[in-house]
């Protein structure tokens, strides 16, 4: 971690300790937009840390943005940082600038005709109801287009993820202004999927670290049979297993951060598959250690674990990415398997 990154991490950590308390996360789950938090993240430039300044960002490198997502996930920040970052990047590629209000990403089935009539729908659009705009990919008559549209110009049906965060369904049937339609490469949907999976992997690594910290702390505070349960070997061993999974997740996510600029497909696949697998192990153990207390809404463990259960399925669950890795690795042949592995940075 360089100096700039350490600064981002420390600043964000202080800021989120104040502005993203468990009460704030609960409030968001009860339908209150965390406007104050968003405004601060936006004004400090943290929301777009790695997006070029010419596109409204802070002009750091992309690793910085992913670091922000990693840290924010440690606090379960109920704001669409990942989506806003992806939208900011995609618009920046087109020379356009993302707005101050959060922008989200819709992944669905959209078409746009030559008169720029956009139609289609998407499910599970993160935080759509609280966003100003949506960025999406649509099939044009002569190739893929990237479109931006105000949320107010869509039909929105509210929905929630298992984490209690907005995952709304939107449908669109409207003519767009030419300024809001851009030529995109035919791989735009794939690139959005890769970016989405990358952000989710990094967020999972952050939330997993926090889950381990909470579990260690709880085990030291909770006393049974006359001593803190952290003194029991059975508990220590469960925490050790968690630590192994968390370390693996963090390293897999770090690798995604380093190679994000080139959207390395295999790095992202490995990160998403590995962190996703760690979620199953760690949420099971964390809840076991926390006992009934961790099963309540009162304890903030659920803020982390429910988001982990949501994120592991978004932008492709483990199986999808494992298959991609398997197909890539088998293609080199058995006798080259080792070379294929060492070629992965």
């Amino acid at each position: 971690m360089n100096e700039q990154q350490q600064l981002i991490k420390d600043t964000l950590s202080r800021l989120l300790t104040d502005l993203c308390t468990p009460q704030e996360v609960d409030a968001a789950e009860n339908g209150e937009w965390a406007g104050n938090l968003w405004q601060t993240l936006n004004e400090t430039g943290l929301a777009l840390a790695g997006v070029p300044e010419t596109a409204g960002g802070s002009g750091g490198d992309l690793e910085d943005s992913l670091l922000v997502l990693h840290e924010a996930a440690r606090f379960s920040a109920p704001v669409p940082l990942a989506e806003h970052f992806i939208a900011g990047l995609l618009l920046a590629e087109q020379g356009a600038v993302v707005g101050d209000a959060p922008t989200t990403i819709a992944v669905g089935d959209f078409e746009i005709d030559d008169a720029l009539n956009l139609s289609g729908s998407a499910e599970n659009v993160a935080f759509a109801r609280w966003c100003g705009e949506i960025v999406l990919a649509a099939r044009g008559t002569a190739g893929m287009k990237l479109c931006r549209i105000a949320v107010a110009e869509t039909d929105l049906t509210p929905g929630l993820s298992v984490a209690g965060e907005p995952r709304d369904t939107i449908s669109v049937s409207r003519q767009l202004d030419a300024a809001n339609v851009f030529d995109a490469g035919d791989d735009i949907e794939h690139r959005i999927r890769l970016m989405g999976a990358a952000t989710r992997s990094v967020m999972m690594a952050g939330a997993l670290e926090s889950t381990l910290e909470m579990s260690v702390q709880y085990s030291q505070e909770r006393s049974q049979f006359g001593r803190s349960i952290s003194k029991f070997q059975a508990i220590q061993h469960q925490l050790a297993v968690m630590a192994g999974e968390v370390a693996a997740s963090t390293l897999a996510a770090d690798c995604i951060k380093e190679s994000f600029a080139s959207l390395n497909e295999v790095d992202i696949a490995i990160g998403k598959a590995r962190t996703g697998e760690a979620v199953s192990v760690c949420t099971d153990l964390a809840h076991g250690i926390h006992g009934a207390m961790g099963y309540t809404l009162e304890h903030s463990l659920n803020h982390r674990t429910r988001r982990l259960w949501c994120w592991r399925d978004e932008y492709g669950a483990e199986k999808e990415w494992q298959l991609l890795i398997g197909q890539k690795f088998v293609a080199g042949g058995a006798d080259n398997l080792w070379a294929t592995i060492t070629d992965q940075s």
Binding site: A248, A252, A269, I270, Q322, L323, L324, F329, V330, G333
Partner: peptide
Amino acid sequence: TREIEENGTDEQLALLGRLSAHLVTLR
């Protein structure tokens, strides 16, 4: 890998992918 080089099922390929993800991360 040699066994599934030619006609691996999706399940088998995903398993190779899963184990490879572990291995790359351990490295």
